[in-house]
Design a protein around this nucleic acid. Structure first.
Length: 495
RNA sequence: GGCGUCUUGGCCGAGUGGCUAGGCAGAGGUCUGCAAAACCUUCUACAGCGGUUCGAAUCCGCUAGACGCCUCCA
């Protein structure tokens, strides 16, 4: 189904600071590159938010019927701690500290990254290339840039000549900076003696003797500069020009700016049509960061083991919490905020579970299904506005409850549209998971047992033996099983 | 210091030059043996000051505050 032919999608382009109607280079196909994690520690919830934003984007593209090649890299080398001469590879540093092999660090945190994203129900990208797997490609790009005269070699290291590049190109067009300002305002850092100018950045760094991650190159045994890997891998898998490049807001400058410079230096054309930047997740209204310790780990969310949390929260609740904010807005994490989301999430899931049990009528009252459906698309078409989409979903929730209470009716045709549309947006696009599905699949013995107790309690209530019925109810509650008395009998939830 | 973003009701969080965001909480109600849950209804708003306009929370300017980037960062 090529839904994209009927839906006009607008995306905010960081390059132009405007929402633009999205037109892929090749109709029906999308090339999308997203900067992945540096695998030197566990991903925190802030990292997860960025990747989740693009997971949602990927999901919506797929739903619209596009064939998407989604490339998300793993940075497993070449990521300088700083740009100074004694710059050290982050992975290598961690390996030395823990006395293990660099690849061991990479393996450990790559596995953790995948496990974490799986828990959050991420779709895997089409290609997940690693920096160390593309050293040759990176060396080739450096050669190309040297040939063009836009880089220079000093003591076995190669630097990009930003000043020279800027004479024929526009360095700073993505982040709205100009070179003059940068020259006057760059903070002074130690040990930049090799560079002609502080704005220059490393393409290749010569490895010091103690440096354990190194590769041979025409210039030295060393390692590639951080910005280079993304240029190498995006070019290799998506071409010299592709549709979408995404990443966290904090990568806009200098990382993405440098990517543009490298690609333009090589190919003389702007590599990316639409730049998308996902905003930060904050904690205590400050950016989550590995370095400062101001962060929270996914596992701490799932277990509740963090003094900032009042209780555990499921991956889907966390996902719902994030989807309630627009991807370009800063979102502040707090226990109170996610608790509120959890209640809303449960309400949504309850309604979806109710839906399948509704009785259909001859016609539909109180609700215009087809215009509601288009409203859902309109929300997503407006730069992936998931908060608006969720608001639309809740108007369907309200309607479902009205039908349940026999205050409205729904026709078979509308019932089918409502069901399929809800499934599309809740599960396919937002990527949420229905908790009751898990219960049903895994714990039949539990539910049979509780059913037994529910029946016993019903008998006791019928006999007006309220002491016994309340005992059953309260003691189940102590175990964490809550009984819910409804019109059509008693159901239960676990927590 | 430079560049940029943001400031919405008790909380979270959308959006728009005139028309209901939504969720949570609060209040009232329905249901119930009682409760819980669920559902229904409902109140509180656009940082401050000026300007543009028939009309601005929405556009412009100033002020205050917060945050991000400028160094590794999702």
């Amino acid at each position: 189904m090529q839904l994209y032919k009927n839906q006009e999608l607008k995306i905010y382009n960081s390059l132009t600071s405007k929402k633009e109607v999205f037109k892929p280079i090749n109709e029906g196909y999308i090339g999308m590159y997203v900067c992945g994690p540096t695998v030197y520690s566990n991903v925190h919830l802030g990292n997860v938010r960025t990747f989740m934003s693009f997971d949602m984007v990927f999901r919506y593209f797929k739903h619209l019927g596009y064939k998407v090649r989604y490339v998300r890299n793993i940075t497993d080398a070449g990521h300088l701690e700083n740009d100074a001469d004694e710059g050290e590879d982050r992975i290598a540093k961690k390996a030395r500290i823990e006395q293990i092999e660099p690849m061991e660090v990479v393996q450990m945190y790559t596995v953790d990254f995948h496990n974490t994203l799986n828990k959050f129900n991420f779709l895997p990208p089409s290609i997940e290339p690693t920096a160390t797997g593309h050293i040759i490609e990176q060396i080739e790009i450096i050669k190309e840039i040297l040939d063009k005269g836009l880089a220079y070699e000093v003591n076995g290291s190669v630097y990009f000549d930003v000043h020279k590049f800027n004479k024929t190109h526009n360095y700073g067009k993505l982040s709205g900076r100009n070179l003059e300002d940068l020259i006057h305002n760059t903070r002074t850092l130690d040990g930049q003696s090799d560079k002609k100018n502080p704005q220059d950045f490393a393409l290749w760094k010569k490895a010091e003797p103690q440096h354990i991650m190194r590769w041979p190159s025409p210039w030295s045994d060393g390692f590639p500069g951080w910005h280079l890997e993304c240029t190498a891998m995006s070019t290799k898998y998506l071409g010299e020009q592709f549709d979408i490049h995404g990443g966290g807001m904090d990568l806009k400058f200098p990382h993405h700016e440098c990517e543009i410079a490298q690609a333009e230096a090589c190919n003389n054309q702007s590599p990316v049509n639409v730049w998308m930047h996902a905003n930060m997740l904050t904690l205590n209204s400050q950016k989550m960061a590995k370095s400062t310790g101001n962060n929270i780990l996914p596992n701490e969310i799932f277990t509740g083991k963090n003094d900032k949390l009042s209780k555990p929260f499921s991956p889907s609740v966390t996902r719902f919490f994030m989807m309630q904010a627009h991807y370009r807005s800063i979102l502040d994490f707090s226990s109170v905020a996610i608790e509120a989301s959890e209640r809303g999430f449960n309400k949504l899931m309850d309604a979806i579970n109710t839906l399948s049990k509704l009785e259909v009528s001859k016609n539909t009252t109180n609700f215009n299904i087809s215009s509601w459906k288009q409203s859902c698309y309109d929300a997503m078409n407006d730069d992936f506005n998931t908060p608006i989409l969720i608001a639309e979903l809740f108007s369907a929730v309200k309607f479902i409850n009205q039908v349940k209470d026999e205050k409205a009716t729904i026709s078979q045709e509308d019932f089918d549209i409502l069901t399929s549309t809800l499934n599309v947006f809740v599960f396919d696009v937002l990527g949420l998971q229905n908790v009751s599905d898990n219960d049903a699949s895994g714990s039949n013995k539990l539910s049979d047992t509780v059913e037994l107790l529910i029946n016993m309690r019903a008998e006791a209530r019928a006999n007006k033996d309220f002491a016994l019925s309340d005992k059953i109810r309260d003691e189940l509650a102590d175990i964490g099983i809550q009984l819910k008395d409804g019109k059509d009998g008693t159901t239960f939830t676990t927590n």
